[in-house]
């Protein structure tokens, strides 16, 4: 089925954004191959600034692969090849002159499984500002850590045990610690790769609430398996299927009135 679709010229169904937000990330015809296997067949999408964009789709549809292209995390995978253009504020992300370390400081990432460093809670958050030299003094660093933890709605729970290991927190707290770690370097974009898939419903609700608050200051792209989650937290939704971007548009539009049959089939649970 994928071979047939790959040969047929493919057109993404797009619904423009009524809110008219400025665009943070442009991607044009992004193709990714892992060795012989093509994972993405040319994805073009504009990601709005200070909004939450959700990528949905069945497993193996390429949504995580595409997310990892944006901060070049696919560079670390042997045999992965990325074609096409991705620009962040009109700067080519795959420009050979671009410093990937600087890019990742601007585009933070939160992973599927909470992965705090085996260090103290304080050091987890302070690590990014330290290596990027963002804090002039010790007091400066402490302030960054405290505000980041506050922004991640974690400070009140951990303020008495900042020196304890981050790995000792509960799963949901660990994930919020990872979010605090990501926002401590003041990124412009935060990529979230199924951030709630390893968490229980209560922790998930907290993270979703947090994402909604972070939207005011950051551009957020979230990959999720849960359509309810996408509907709850995002302003725009993109539906991926078999390496193609099938449909993208305002979230309420995509969920209530999808223009593509496959989108409708997926969100109504007919496959996936």
């Amino acid at each position: 089925m994928s071979a047939v679709q790959a040969t047929v010229p493919f057109e993404t169904v797009r619904t423009p954004d009524a809110a008219g937000r400025p665009i943070k990330i442009h991607t044009r015809n992004v193709k990714v191959t892992y060795g012989q296997k093509q994972a993405l067949h040319g994805v073009s999408i504009d990601i709005a600034e200070k909004a939450v964009t959700a990528f949905i789709g069945p497993s193996g549809c390429g949504k995580s692969t595409f997310l990892r292209c944006i901060n070049r995390m696919n560079d670390t995978i042997a045999g992965a090849r990325v074609e096409g253009t991705i620009t962040l504020d009109d700067q080519d992300v795959y420009d050979p002159d671009l410093d990937v370390v600087e890019l990742r400081a601007r585009v933070g990432m939160v992973f599927q499984k909470p992965n705090p460093f085996p260090k103290s809670i304080f050091d987890n958050v302070a690590y990014g500002p330290r290596i990027h030299g963002l804090a002039r003094s010790k007091a400066d660093l402490e302030e960054i850590v405290v505000t980041s933890l506050q922004k991640a709605s974690l400070f009140n729970e951990v303020k008495d045990r900042l020196t304890e290991p981050g790995t000792g927190l509960s799963g949901g707290q660990q994930q919020r610690l990872c979010i605090a770690r990501a926002i401590a370097v003041s990124p412009e974009v935060i990529l979230m790769d199924e951030p709630c898939s390893a968490l229980d419903p209560i922790a998930t609700a907290k993270i979703e609430e947090l994402i909604d608050e972070l939207r005011a200051n950051f551009t957020i792209v979230i990959v999720t398996h849960s359509m309810q989650q996408a509907a709850r937290v995002s302003q725009r939704t993109a539906f991926f299927h078999l390496g193609h971007l099938i449909e993208e548009g305002p979230t309420d539009h995509v969920f209530t009135n999808p223009l593509e049959q496959r989108t409708l089939d997926y969100i109504t649970g007919r496959f996936g």
Binding site: N71, M73, T76, V101, E102, L103, R104, A105, G108, M109, V110, F111, N115, P116, F117, Y127, G128, I131, H132, C178, R181, A182, V185
Partner: peptide, 8 residues
């Protein structure tokens, strides 16, 4: 991934 993702 955590290290690289934060820009180390």
């Amino acid at each position: 991934e955590a290290g690289l993702g934060i820009g180390a």
